[in-house]
Design a protein around this nucleic acid. Sequence first.
DNA 1: AATCCCTTGTTCTAGACAGCATGTC
DNA 2: CTAGAACAAGGGATT
Length: 696
Amino acid sequence: MPTNKILEILKDFGIEELRPPQKKALEKGLLDKNKNFLISIPTASGKTLIGEMALINHLLDENKNPTNKKGIFIVPLKALASEKYEEFKNKYERYGLRVALSIGDYDEDEDLSRYHLIITTAEKLDSLWRHKIDWIDDVSVVVVDEIHLINDESRGGTLEILLTKLKKFNIQIIGLSATIGNPEELANWLNAELIVDDWRPVELKKGIYKNGIIEFINGENREIKAINNNDIYNLVVDCVKDGGCCIVFCNTKRGAVNEAKKLNLKKFLTNEEKRKLKEVAEEILSILEPPTEMCKTLAECILNGSAFHHAGLTYQHRKIVEDAFRNKLIKVICCTPTLSVGLNLPCRRAIVKDLTRYTNRGMRYIPIMEIQQCIGRAGRLGLDPYGEGIIVAKNDRDYLRSYQVLTQKPEPIYSKLSNQAVLRTQLLGLIATIEIRDEYDLEWFIRNTFYAYQYGNLREVAKNINEVIRFLEEKEFMIDFIPTELGKRVAELYIDPLSAKYMIDGLNEMENEDDIYYLYLISKTLEMMPNLRVYKSEELNLIDEMENLGIKSFEIEDLEAFKTAKMLYDWISEVPEDEILKKYKIEPGILRYKVENAVWLMHALKEMAKIIGKNSEIPEKLEIRLEYGAKEDIIELLNVKYIGRVRARKLYNAGIRNVEDIINNPSKVASIIGEKITKKILEDLGIKFGQQKLIF
DNA sequence: AATCCCTTGTTCTAGACAGCATGTC
DNA sequence: CTAGAACAAGGGATT
């Protein structure tokens, strides 16, 4: 497809002129379908559009009709996938392209072969691959957003293996990356043309704030009027009173909340804004019934024109905060790294409060790349004359580091394939899908990884790999590179083989069938880490309870797993959410996250039980109970569409205990949960019953 | 004896991907 | 390498 055809399509969405990096990519042969690309340019400078041009080039023909080739767009977050899905659907369905979203908890359609453009995550694509996708040969282009995530300790290895697999096919790969230290290396490995550029649509002024003055890297200085002795407050007010808005990046959730509390901007709000903010605050309080402490704090901040944003918020909370910020109602968001990746949420002034962060190896500097991505948030196209990225330096050491961060190039990225958990999961995946059938395949595959490309010497990784291979063989996931039934199933379930082994051992050694024991088994897996912290005062009680269940090991990790199991038990016992949160000292978002993981792992445990011939009924029940957070007696009601834990409990207490009761007492049901919903439920059931009759 | 102030000790720390089933005239 | 806030506990002085 010639370039001008692409430009014509872009005009359909109002894009008249390309930006410099986009032009550069075209000049270097982006539309040559056999040429891979690595695009390393700043946030918000039009990376995605480069990927889109490549997609259009493959998916549409001269007459703007589908070519029936496939394109895949890989993003790092589910939230981002949903956002892109909506965007692409709006843009490309008019040409007859069928767009699908395929992420963990949501599938557009089981049969993705009918779609042209698939939006997904690396893990999901990997998982699809394990379930044997038959359409991979139709794929002719893959765009990988935030490809530098290959550097991520826990998830990078998966992306790397996926890319290594994709490279074997005749597929054009377009990697989109933030600015990184060693783009050449990554590009060479990908056999890709490299585009590096620092062009930005809005100028970014980088500066360090110290002693009441912002010193910009370009030499300018700006004195900040001190209203009080809170540096962040003064910086925020300085921006907000000119009609701007800010994002403050913090290194802890508590820090983000505390900063947000201190930023009272009432003085700068119009009455109209105050009224609307009140509505937003009420919306926040309506998410959870009753509202938790966190909800109340957030609502109070919002009345002041500020907000916090971190993993403790539920998705609904986050969405409300993000939207209110986009609508310029909320003037400042104090956040953890939740906002440093992905999401399009620009501001006029991005403030970095902390340069270090606590890790499992103690306090460490936050990578230059991450901070550059944070400050890259500054500058709203068409709204701000320029963006300001400011680091707050508390002392001389901070000042030096800030200067480094703002002027030096980011760290190089490194393969994280040495991560044992990733290696176990990935090698089993490759063996289960018969992509690796013997030692030669294995060696050949490893040689093609980024790891091998970077380190050359394979001796170190060979040791790791042999260990994993031995483990897989010993635990009967495979015999002589032939996957066993167990191995295949574990690969499909997408759990760490080590977790599968824990589960199987646990099921075999089980002395009783208490619900809590099953919850304990899944809490012991790596996938559930980190577990809840156990305080000294709790230890003896926990050990006591564990002994009664026949658990014999009382390492601190075991106690933590058991405490987590107890929390999950409370969840499925319908203990009110706010009570659970208080008791275990966590926030709503974290509870949801834990529960989501637990549902997945309980499903895996059920499958493990089936495979080794153990009772799978209890895990099956627990899976449903975890999903809804409910007791056993209302499971049947929960299986009915439109009935969740609250409606089910109401109905149950009123004597409606199963599907039959619903059908026989529609008016009673309607009086409890409303007529509209009852009608919907009956409609749904009617169809189901029709099908059942056919079977009889 | 109750209260207050200051010092010392202790605790705690970011984020977020993955599974589904169901046989068959 | 590259921490610092928040809170609890304890000691001593003051009222």
